[in-house]
Amino acid sequence: MDSDGRDMVNVGTSKVEEKPQCCEVKIVFPTNVQAQQAMQVLAVDPEPTNRVAKKFRILQEVDPKNNKKYCMAVRFESNELKMLRVAVSSFLDYLALVIKTMEEFDTGMES
């Protein structure tokens, strides 16, 4: 895995009005292409219930050393903390699988 910690996950909970519980997961990828690919793969599956909603976006951030960082940000919202936990937990499992597949088969990753 790349040294910039692609598997680093920031989890934060805050309050919004319609769905009071929310959680945003941000994952940093080495390149924009990989961030986009991960988003495309993971955005296909709808949540099994409508009690949880999730939204994807790609962020470009700049770290303190002025390096560009490509982030996939996923925001989960729900009225129930339990549903939120289940959704985030299984999402992370699938994300880990995407990263594992990329590590094994993304030949362009080293370059």
Binding site: T101, F105, D106
Partner: peptide, 19 residues
């Protein structure tokens, strides 16, 4: 079963994009 199916589909999709 939903979750096992989805796990394999996630891998298949990633490979399809990579290759």
């Amino acid at each position: 079963m939903g979750a096992p199916l989805q796990s394999c589909a996630v891998c298949a999709r990633t490979l399809s994009l990579l290759w």
